[in-house]
Every structure is written in C-alpha cells, then in structure tokens.
Design a protein around this nucleic acid. Sequence first.
DNA 1: TATGAAATGAACCAAATGTTTCACAAGCAC
DNA 2: GTGCTTGTGAAACATTTGGTTCATTTCATA
Lengths: 290, 290
Amino acid sequence: MQDLIDTLSGNYASLSPQLRLAAKHVMDRPEDVALKSMRAVAADAGVAPSTMVRLAQASGFKSYDAFREPFQDSVRTGGASFASRTEWLVQLAGEGDTGQLTGSMAEAVISNVENAFRGVETETLEEAAQLLRNANRVYVAGFGGMSAVANYFYFVAHMVLPHLVPVGASGGTSIDDLAHIWQGDVLATFSVEPYSRETSRALEFAKRRGAKIFAITDSRASPAGASADVALFASTASPQFFPSQAAVIALIETLVALIVAHGDEKIVSWMEDLERVRAEEGLILKRGEG
Amino acid sequence: MQDLIDTLSGNYASLSPQLRLAAKHVMDRPEDVALKSMRAVAADAGVAPSTMVRLAQASGFKSYDAFREPFQDSVRTGGASFASRTEWLVQLAGEGDTGQLTGSMAEAVISNVENAFRGVETETLEEAAQLLRNANRVYVAGFGGMSAVANYFYFVAHMVLPHLVPVGASGGTSIDDLAHIWQGDVLATFSVEPYSRETSRALEFAKRRGAKIFAITDSRASPAGASADVALFASTASPQFFPSQAAVIALIETLVALIVAHGDEKIVSWMEDLERVRAEEGLILKRGEG
DNA sequence: TATGAAATGAACCAAATGTTTCACAAGCAC
DNA sequence: GTGCTTGTGAAACATTTGGTTCATTTCATA
C-alpha cells in the first residue's frame, strides 16, 4: 500500500483537479479506502463516485476493487494498527535508541495532554474564556522559551478577540508594551520552569495597575500560578532537555474553541469573512492547486 | 472490539450451534468482519447470512452494521473522524456543552499525537535529523497559522543548530530572506491546510536553487509533502474551527531531541553554557525566587 | 471568437448488499 | 401422537454497491 501511496504522490502533479482531490483523500485516509464503500469515500473526498473509478484506473488498476485490495491488505497485516499503546511503545523501543526516544516522547506528550485535560475544571475554562472575552484589553506575554507559545496564542486568538495586544514582540522591553495596562485589562502570561524574570516583572507591574491576570503555566507554585486570577496548568515533562509544550498548546486551542463556541454569533461570521478574504486575496491556495 | 470479543466468548456456551459457528469465526478473524461483506463472512463461517444478523442482534446490536463498527474502529489507525468545519459551525448554533467540547478536543489531540508518532518511521526521523544537522544553512519558513509553529521550531532548534535562518520574520517578503539559499542548504517548511501561497512559492524557489526540502505538513498531497526530500506528517484534525497544532509541536520536539541525542557532545556543552549564562545574567529566576 | 480535446458529474444499470419474511425442521412438554 | 417453542436457511425485499454511459462544462489552442 505504501508503494501505491508513493506512486500516487509521485503522479499527483500530473492528475486533473478532481483526481487530485480524490488522490489526496486516499493518501490522507487510506484506512477509509479499506473500510468504507467507494461512494462513501468519494463523498468524503468531495468528488463524484465515477472519479474514484477513474483514479483507480489512472493508477493502473482494472477496477476499484483491485485498487482497494492493497489498502485492505495493509490494514489486515498492519499489526501496528492493532497494537495497543503499550505494545506499540514496547515495539518502538526495540528499534534502537531512536525508537526509544521517539516512544518516550510520545508517552510524555500523551500523558501531559491527558493530565492537562483531566486536571482542568470546566468552570475554570469557562472563567478563563469569560475573563478574556470581557476584558477591555488583553496583553499577551511570554518570554524565552514561551515567546513562541505566546505568539501562537496571539495568532489564533486575535481572530476571535479583537482587543489583543502582543507584549515583547516589538523588540522593546516588555514594560514599554505594558505601559498603558489598566483596570479592566487582562495580562495573559505563558510560563514554565525556568521562569523568566521578565514574566514576574510583568506580573507585578500589571497587578499594581489593577489589571487581572490570566496564566497558563506548569505549576500552582509558579510565580504566575500563584498570582493569577484564573490559571490553567499543563505539565511540560519530557525525556529530553527541553520542556514539551504540546499540552500547553492543546489547552490554548481548547480555550480559543470555547471563546468562539460561547461567544456571540458575530464571531462566527467574522471568521468566515476572514477566511473568505484570505482566499480572495490569493494568500492561500485553493483546493487542488499546487 | 476486544470487549465485544470477550462478551462473545463469554456468551459462547449459551449460543445455538449455528450462532456458535458464526461467533467462532468472528473471534478467529475479526479483521474479516471489518473488511468483508456480511455475506462473505457468513460464507466463510459456513452459516447462512441471516445467522450473522442474528448474531449481531444477540450481541445487543440493532443491526449488523452497528455490530461491525467496533471491528472497523479497531482496525482503523486514524481514530475518530470529526465533523467538518461547516458542520461544527452549524452545531455551534445548538450551543454545545463546555465539557463536551473539552473532551472532544482532548480526544482529537491525543489521537493526532498518537497517529503522528505511529505513522512515522524511525528512519525518516533519523534522516530528518541528519538532513538538518548536516546542512550548510537551514532556512525556517512558516506562514499564516504556521508562522508561530515555525517560530517555535526556530527558537527550540537554534540552540542546537547554529546555522538556522528565520524566513519571513523580519517583515520583508520571504523571498528576500531566501535570496542566498543554495545547494547544501535546506528549506524547512511547516504547513497545513489551507496552504499558503507563500509556502509554495518558497518551495519552488528553494528547489530551483538546488536546496533540499524538509517539511512537516498534514498530508502527503500537500505542496510541501509532495516536493519534500524528507517529510513528516501530523494530522491537525480538530472538533473546532482551527486546526490543532499540538501534534506538529510534538513532532518538532522529538526531532530536536534526536538532533541533540545523536549530535556531537559539543552541542550538549553548548546548551549547558547557554543555560548557565542565562541564569548568571539574571534572565531567569532561581528556584524559590518569586 | 471558434474549435476540439479533456474533464466532469448526473443518470443509469446489473450485481451485490443488509434485512425481513416465512416455511420447515428439530426438540421438548404434555 | 399433538401442540408449541426454538433454531434454521431459502427466498424475496428494498437499498446500496461498483461500473458505464453520455451530455455538459471547462479550457487551452487555433
């Protein structure tokens, strides 16, 4: 099957738009080809049933059923897909130190994500969403290793929260960016150990000004965790030198989802607008375009 | 599915002869149930088609299709399929529950991470690590929603790879930053649907210059996935409007861990230096300091 | 703009699908 | 033996399947 996918990927450029759509879907969800009916796969891919037949023929198969066979075989023999998580990790460990490292990273990330979601109360998430939504301004701050995370939050959230202000991105000191923070504003911080001095400075400053604090951090005992009005916690445990931010990212994404879900319908039409504009301006590729 | 097989095995004694035949075959070849038609399975088991329906009903399922579902799920590597974005938007009108949204996000992230790690071959990870380590220069590019991810990669990796060059961060056009890319260099791209036009432009440019391409993306059929020398894939499926980047982040972290693990000892002492300096310069807080 | 080739989707077909029905057989109580 | 329940498979059912046809659309070329 992998051979077939490689072939498909190789010929991809020379296919017609509709065949590309079909091929892309097949490559993305090969199990569906094995399990679902041709029509169902076609519907998922957004093409006509006949297009699937044409794809099969274009790939050198006499019929769609013949085309489907390799996929069914790979699902059948692919003991990997049957393996439980622990079995899989053990097997991975058998593949040398690369496999071991990969396995332990996967384990760490999954358990971090699980713990983050398990540990959080839905009310706290609600509170956080409300705090951010109702704030006058939200200042977004993350330093050192967390600047990228703060950056990510800013990018995702600014589409649904118009009152976001990035801190520390402009090159100046963070206090410059915070100069106008005030009551009714919120400082959103992202921090993990080792905690940067700049974060705690920003925290103190914002508090003194009467702003509320929202934090995502790795411990209740952290500077941000202790002083925040609303805080979410995500472990960053990792078998390697750098803390893993995957769980933090997951929390951020969930939070933004909540903000949208329980926000007014204005937000939704707004996002639709945004996407439409980006498409019209040619900033993003249309489906099938390459 | 294993639960179902256990139940089947438990009730086995109390079944009628024909149902036993059917149940035995189902337990022996569960993949066949997932892949073949009911009639085919019945024929293999040596029973009438209706017997299969009866087995399904006797197991507490309303239809044979419902009975088959657990088998298909267990065969399937790609776990839950999520409603399309538009469906999600519709669902929003019905105002979903906070807990439900949180749960489905957790499910999505975990399954994305697991699939990303399961789908990757350890050799590919090795190749990627080597490609990046041995490159003359590595240009790091991500646009739109992926700029934060690229930013994260740059931040984490630049501590272990001194020859990293950010693209598009300086405010100018990305091509400006790529101007000096050449053979022996590598373009590292991060992209998910909807693919930005800028990414494919950068890809073309780098290829023309003879540079190698490394990509983390969400599909083999994506512009980056198709043209990359080494590519890693991570699903970004999510029950909400924005794709989830958590799995991409997890892959990035693993890759960096590999680069460190198999790099020369210079890298390690280098990182130690870096941390020492940051501590000494008072950029980060000592333990207990707040 | 006109022309021809390629691409596409709607409609259709025969075959196969899951399901239901029903007649019959086997076993059991009386 | 007669009734009655349970188990069973053949046949018929509506539905869905993979495959084909063909009119229409698309688009590059003339």
